[in-house]
Nucleic acid binder design. Structure first.
Length: 961
RNA sequence: GCGCGAGUGGCGGAAUUGGCAGACGCGCCAGACUUAGGAUCUGGUGCCUUCGGGUGUGCGGGUUCGAGUCCCGCCUCGCGCACCA
C-alpha cells in the first residue's frame, strides 16, 4: 500500500467523487436555463447550439433503498446528457419523485408511521444514494408529487379533463377529425338547441339533475356506476391495466372481482384511434408499440342486429367476419348480458336437445344456476378453464337476418361481457371456439368458406377461400374471397338496416379512483342532488387532510361481498363543507369526494413540470414547453409530422401499457385544449434491459442469502455453490428481497467508487439486453480507471507525468480512430463498445514511455461522460481550473482516419492463406498482379485459375480450377 | 395457439454494404514485483492437432468466389397476448 501512495483506489475515488459532487452542487454546474419564467436566462439559452431533454422514468422511493439494477438507466441518461453538454447543447436532465401511492402507504402501515414521514425518509435515502452516483441533475427541478405545489397542478389538470368533452367531428390542426373541447362549448350547443338532447326533450324542460347527467355523459372525466375491478385484499378498486392476466392485482397479487360501484373514469377510449395511430410517429421499440396496439385492440368488422323471436328487441353482436353470417347457426351471450332475463323462456321449447338444458326442468332454473356459477368464479378461475365449453340454452330464439331462420340463443362463459357487445353470432364453420361449442351441444355446422383440400374435416376453417352456402334471394357471396365478401355483406346489412361496418376496441375507459389515503384528493364536491361540481381554481390545491387512521379497510382477499371504504370518509369535518363555488349561487353545503387519485396521476405529467418546476401561475409556461418539447422541423420518424416530446426517455418495459399509455392520453388532452404544442409526450423511448443477479436455492427450494454462498470447484472443474456447508443451486433472477440477492450501490461505492460502478454497468453489454451481475468482474472497470490515472499521475509522487511533446503518428491514428468511434457509439447508446474503444486507447497510452499531454487530455474528455469524477479530477490536475462539463468533446481529424497502408487478406477458395501490406490507394490491377506473384498463390494455382475477385485494397480471393 | 425478439469461447459480449470470426472485459495459464497476494504490472488464452494443418457463430439445406450476416425448413430459450368474436 505504502509503496504506491498515489494509486487510484476506492479510498481515493471516494475523496475525489465527494469533492466533485460538492463542487457541482455549489456551482450549479448542471443548471439548465429556461427561456421564460423563474428559471429563465434567455441570454444564456442563446449561447447554446440546440437543446436536449433526457428523461428517466419517475422513481418511486421504496423502503428498501436502491439496488444496483436501479441506476442502470440513470447512468445511461447521464452519459447521454454529459456527452451532449460537451457538444454544446442546453441539456435538461433532472429527477423527481413519484411519492403518492400504495407501496408507500403499505410501508407506512407496517411501520406505524405517517406515509408522509416514511415517504420523505425514503426519498432522503434514495437522494443520498443517487447523489453519490454523480448524476448531473438540475437539482432545482427535483419535484415531488406529494408536494401541494405540485399536486395543485395535478388537480388542475384533472379539472381540465373534467371540463372537457370529446367532439368526434371537430377538425384538428393536423387535418384529422376528433379532439377534446371545453365542456362549455357542449353546454352552449345544448342550450341553443343546436345540439339535441339524447331523447330529444328540449334542454329548457330538463331539470338540473337531468342536465348534469347529459353533460357528465360527455365529460372526459366522469363518475359512472359499472362493474369495476374490486380487490378486497387491497381494499381498493384498480384499473384494467393493473390487473395481470392471471386476474390478480399487479401490486400484491390479490384476487380481483367484478363489482358494480360508482367510480371515477377517464374517457381514454375517445382517444383509442389517435393513441394507436400516433405510435407511427414516435421512435419507440417496436415491441412496446405492439404491446400498446394489442392493448388498444382495434379491430375492423361489423355490428349486426339479430331480431329476437317473439320480442320487440334485437341482440347486437360485433363480428370481424360479417362474410360468414350465413353460417351463424346459434348465438351466445355472456352470462351477465342484460338481455338474458328477458330472453329466458318459461319452458323448454319444442326441439330442445337434452344437452342444452344442463338437466334442469326449466330454462329459468338452468340459466339461474349457470349465471350463479359464473358469478362465483373469480377472474383467475375463468381464465384457467379454457377450452372446455360450457353453457345452457335460454329457451329463446333469434333470427339470422340473412336466412330468416330462427337460431337458438345460449349463454356461455366463453363469451365475455367486457368485450364487444357481450354477445356473439356463432359461426362454427369458421371459428374453432364456436365449432367446439357446436360439437358439445349438437348444433348444426354450415361451412360458408370452401376449405382447402388438405384441411382437417374435423376443424373449423379460418383461412381464406371462396364463399359457399352464402346466398339468399337478394344477396350472394358465393365465390367471393373474404375481403370482397365482407364488403358486400356490410353493404347489404346497411341497406336492410340490420347493421353497419364498425370498429371495435379492446381498450376500456380508465378507472381513476382509489379507496386509499395516500393520493391526491379529487378537486370536486357533490351537492345535495349528487351533482358533481368542479372547485374553482382559486380553491386549489385541495390538501390531503390528516386522518385518525390512514390504513385502508381491507378484507379477506376472497370476500367478494365486501365493499370499499375510503379512509378519507373517516374525517367528516373535511368531507362536509360549506362553500361558495363562485357560480352565483352563494354558499351551499357540499360533500367532498373521499376517493383519491391513483399514483399514475402524478406520473402522467411530471416531465412537463420538470420544464417549469416553480411556476406558481401555470402548470407550464408555453414558452418553456415550446422550447424543450415543441415539435421539431426534422421528424423523428421520416415521412410523418414530428409530434414533439421528450428527446430521449429511458426506462424499463414494465410500464409499456400503464404509465406510457396514460401519459400519452393526458398529453393529447392538454394538447387539444391548447396547453401544449406537442401532441406526444415521448418522441423517443428506449427500453432498457434488467440487471439480473445470481440467486441460490437450497434442497427445499428456499432462497438463501446470496452473499453467504461460497463458490468452489468440483474435481471436474465445474463450479459448486455452497451455503453453510450445504450445496445450493444457482439461478439468475430479478434483484430484490424475495430472491435474497440484493446488491446495494453503497457496497460498490465503498469497494470501488461510483465511477467504477458507472463504467461497469455501462460496459456490461447493450443497454437493451438483460444481463447478469457479476461483482467479481467489476474489478476490470477499476483497472481501467487505474491505468487512466497512471497515464496522467505518477503513482509514487502524485505529480502530473504527461509531457508537452508531439504524439507520434501511430498514437495519433489510435486517438482519432477512437474519437470517431466513441462519438458514434455515444450517439447510438452503444456504451459498451465506446468503453471498448476507450480501453484500447487507454491500453495503447499505457505502453508509451512518455505520454503526450494533448492525447491524455482528449482521452480524459472522452471518458468524462462515463466516469465524470475521475475525469474532472485529472482535467483539473492537468491545469484546467474550469469544470469539463461544458468543454468541447474531441473532434476526429480526418487525416488520421485513413490508413497509408492496409493489410490485404489473400484468400484461396475463400480461405485466408496469406496477407500482404499494401498502399491504401492501390489500384485493382496492381493488387491482382502483386497477389498472383505471391509464392503461396503460385503454389495453389498450379492447375490454372478459375477466377480472381479483387476488393482493393483489403481483399483478394483467388479461385483455382 | 398467435405475435415479437434472441441463440457466437468457460462467462458478459464485438464484428459498415456479405469480405481476417471472437474487439473489450471477466475467468483461466505463465511470468514480474513481493514476507505474503484474493493488490498491481507484463505476456498468453475458441476447439482439435501428428504443429503441416484441420475445424468453428443452435440444427439441416440453399444462394455466392466468399455467409455469424441473405433465403428456405426445423430446434431451443426469453418476452408479450391469449375463449378478443
Amino acid at each position: 500500500m505504502n509503496e504506491t501512495p498515489h494509486r487510484y483506489t476506492a479510498a481515493l475515488a471516494d475523496r475525489i467523487e465527494n469533492a466533485w459532487q460538492d463542487r457541482w452542487e455549489e456551482e450549479g454546474t448542471f443548471h439548465a436555463p429556461n427561456p421564460a419564467g423563474s428559471l429563465a436566462d434567455p441570454d444564456k439559452v442563446a449561447t447554446f447550439g440546440g437543446h436536449l431533454l433526457v428523461l428517466d422514468m419517475f422513481p418511486y422511493p421504496s423502503g428498501a433503498g436502491l439496488h444496483i439494477g436501479h441506476p442502470l438507466g440513470y447512468i445511461a441518461t447521464d452519459v447521454v446528457a454529459r456527452y451532449n453538454r460537451m457538444l454544446g447543447k442546453n441539456v435538461l436532465h433532472c429527477l423527481g419523485y413519484d411519492a403518492f401511492g400504495l407501496p408507500a402507504e403499505q410501508y407506512a402501515v407496517q411501520t406505524g408511521q405517517h406515509p408522509r414521514k416514511t415517504t420523505e425518509d425514503n426519498i432522503a435515502i434514495m437522494k443520498r444514494q443517487l447523489r453519490r452516483l454523480g448524476l448531473g441533475h438540475d437539482d432545482r427541478r427535483a419535484i415531488e408529487t406529494i408536494d401541494p405545489d405540485y399536486y395543485r397542478w395535478t388537480q388542475w389538470i384533472f379539472l381540465q379533463i373534467f371540463n372537457a368533452w370529446y367532439d368526434p367531428d371537430a377538425v384538428r390542426p393536423d387535418g384529422g377529425r376528433g379532439r377534446a373541447r371545453p365542456i362549455a362549448d357542449l353546454i352552449a350547443g345544448l342550450e341553443s338547441g343546436e345540439r339535441p338532447t339524447p331523447d330529444g326533450q328540449p334542454w329548457a324542460d330538463l331539470d338540473e339533475v337531468e342536465r348534469a347527467a347529459i353533460i357528465d355523459g360527455h365529460r372526459l372525466a366522469y363518475t359512472h356506476e359499472a362493474p369495476v375491478n374490486w380487490a378486497p385484499g387491497l381494499g381498493t378498486v384498480v384499473s384494467n391495466e393493473e390487473v395481470t392476466n392471471e386476474g390478480l392485482t399487479e401490486r400484491g397479487n390479490f384476487p380481483v372481482f367484478r363489482k358494480n360501484l360508482r367510480q371515477w373514469m377517464m374517457r381514454i377510449t375517445a382517444y383509442a384511434d389517435r393513441l394507436a395511430d400516433d405510435l407511427d410517429r414516435v421512435d419507440w421499440p417496436e415491441k412496446v408499440k405492439l404491446m400498446q396496439r394489442n392493448w388498444i385492440g382495434r379491430s375492423q368488422g361489423a355490428r349486426v342486429s339479430f331480431p329476437v323471436v317473439g320480442m320487440d328487441a334485437t341482440i347486437d353482436v360485433f363480428t370481424t367476419r360479417p362474410d360468414t353470417l350465413f353460417g351463424a347457426t346459434f348465438m351466445v351471450l355472456a352470462p351477465e348480458h342484460p338481455l338474458v332475463p328477458a330472453l329466458t323462456a318459461p319452458a323448454w321449447p319444442e326441439g330442445t336437445k337434452a344437452a342444452w338444458t344442463a338437466g334442469q326442468e326449466s330454462p329459468e332454473g338452468a340459466v339461474a344456476a349457470y349465471r350463479l356459477a359464473a358469478s362465483r368464479k373469480s377472474e383467475v378461475e375463468r381464465q384457467r378453464e379454457t377450452k372446455d365449453k360450457t353453457g345452457v340454452f335460454t329457451g329463446g330464439y333469434a333470427v339470422n337476418p340473412t336466412t330468416g331462420a330462427p337460431i337458438p340463443v345460449f349463454i356461455a362463459d366463453y363469451v365475455l361481457m367486457g368485450y364487444g357487445t357481450g354477445a356473439i353470432m356463432a359461426v362454427p364453420g369458421q371459428d374453432q371456439r364456436d365449432w367446439d361449442f357446436a360439437e358439445e351441444f349438437d348444433l348444426p355446422i354450415i361451412r360458408t368458406v370452401e376449405p382447402t383440400p388438405d384441411h382437417d374435416p374435423g376443424l373449423a376453417f379460418v383461412g381464406d377461400g371462396p364463399a359457399i352456402n352464402s346466398a339468399n334471394d337478394e344477396l350472394s357471396l358465393n365465390g367471393l374471397t373474404i375481403a370482397p365478401a365482407k364488403e358486400r355483406m356490410i353493404a347489404w346489412l346497411q341497406e336492410k338496416g340490420f347493421g353497419e361496418g364498425t370498429i371495435n376496441y379492446k381498450l376500456r375507459d380508465w378507472l381513476f379512483s382509489r379507496q386509499r389515503y395516500w393520493g391526491e384528493p379529487f378537486p370536486v364536491v357533490f351537492d345535495e342532488h349528487g351533482i358533481v361540481h368542479a372547485l374553482p381554481e382559486s380553491m386549489l390545491p385541495v390538501e390531503l387532510p390528516d386522518v385518525p387512521d390512514y390504513s385502508p379497510k381491507t378484507f379477506d382477499p376472497q370476500d367478494n361481498s365486501s365493499s370499499p371504504e375510503a379512509p378519507l370518509s373517516r374525517v367528516p369535518e373535511w368531507v362536509e363543507v360549506e362553500l361558495d363555488l363562485g357560480d352565483g349561487r352563494g354558499r351551499r353545503r357540499f360533500r367532498r369526494d373521499t376517493n383519491t387519485m391513483p399514483n399514475w396521476a402524478g406520473s402522467c405529467w411530471y416531465y412537463l413540470r420538470y420544464l417549469d418546476p416553480s411556476n406558481a401561475a401555470s402548470f407550464l409556461d408555453p414558452a418553456n414547453e415550446a422550447y424543450w418539447i415543441g415539435p421539431r422541423d426534422t421528424p423523428v420518424i421520416a415521412g410523418t409530422a414530428d409530434p414533439g416530446g421528450v428527446d430521449l426517455y429511458i426506462g424499463g418495459v414494465e410500464h409499456a401499457v400503464l404509465h406510457l399509455l396514460y401519459a400519452r392520453f393526458w398529453h393529447k388532452v392538454l394538447h387539444d385544449l391548447g396547453h401544449l404544442t406537442s401532441d406526444e409526450p415521448f418522441r423517443r423511448y428506449f427500453s432498457q434491459g434488467y440487471i439480473q443477479a445470481p440467486a441460490y436455492t437450497d434442497s427445499r427450494g428456499q432462497y438463501v442469502e446470496a452473499k453467504e454462498v461460497v463458490q468452489t470447484a468440483d474435481a471436474a472443474g465445474e463450479p459448486v455453490f455452497t451455503y453453510r456447508g450445504a450445496v445450493v443451486n444457482r439461478e439468475f433472477g430479478k434483484i430484490g428481497k424475495s430472491l435474497k440477492n440484493m446488491v446495494s450501490p453503497d457496497e460498490m461505492y465503498a469497494a470501488y467508487g461510483a465511477d467504477t460502478l458507472r463504467l461497469y454497468e455501462m460496459g456490461m453489454g447493450p443497454l437493451e439486453h438483460s444481463k447478469p451481475w457479476e461483482t467479481k468482474a467489476v474489478v476490470g472497470s477499476l483497472r481501467f480507471l487505474q491505468r487512466l490515472w497512471r497515464i496522467v499521475i505518477d503513482e509514487d509522487t502524485g505529480a502530473v507525468r504527461v509531457a508537452d511533446v508531439s504524439p507520434d503518428d501511430a498514437t495519433l491514428r489510435v486517438l482519432h480512430r477512437s474519437i470517431a468511434a466513441v462519438r458514434e457509439d455515444y450517439a447510438t447508446l452503444g456504451f459498451n463498445t465506446a468503453i471498448a474503444r476507450l480501453t484500447e486507447l487507454n491500453n495503447a497510452l499505457t505502453k508509451l514511455e512518455v505520454v503526450p499531454r494533448s492525447v491524455a487530455e482528449q482521452l480524459v474528455l472522452m471518458v468524462a461522460p462515463l466516469a465524470p469524477h475521475i475525469a474532472e479530477e485529472l482535467w483539473n490536475r492537468l491545469g484546467h481550473p474550469e469544470s469539463l462539463a461544458y468543454a468541447a468533446f474531441p473532434l476526429p481529424d480526418e487525416r488520421y482516419l485513413v490508413e497509408e497502408t492496409v493489410t490485404c487478406v489473400i484468400q484461396i477458395r475463400g480461405k485466408v492463406r496469406d496477407r500482404v501490406e499494401v498502399p491504401a490507394g492501390i489500384a485493382e490491377d496492381a493488387l491482382r498482379d502483386l497477389v498472383m506473384a505471391r509464392p503461396k498463390v503460385l503454389d495453389a494455382v498450379g492447375g490454372g485459375v478459375r477466377t480472381v475477385i479483387v476488393r482493393a485494397p483489403k481483399l483478394v480471393n483467388v479461385v483455382p480450377l
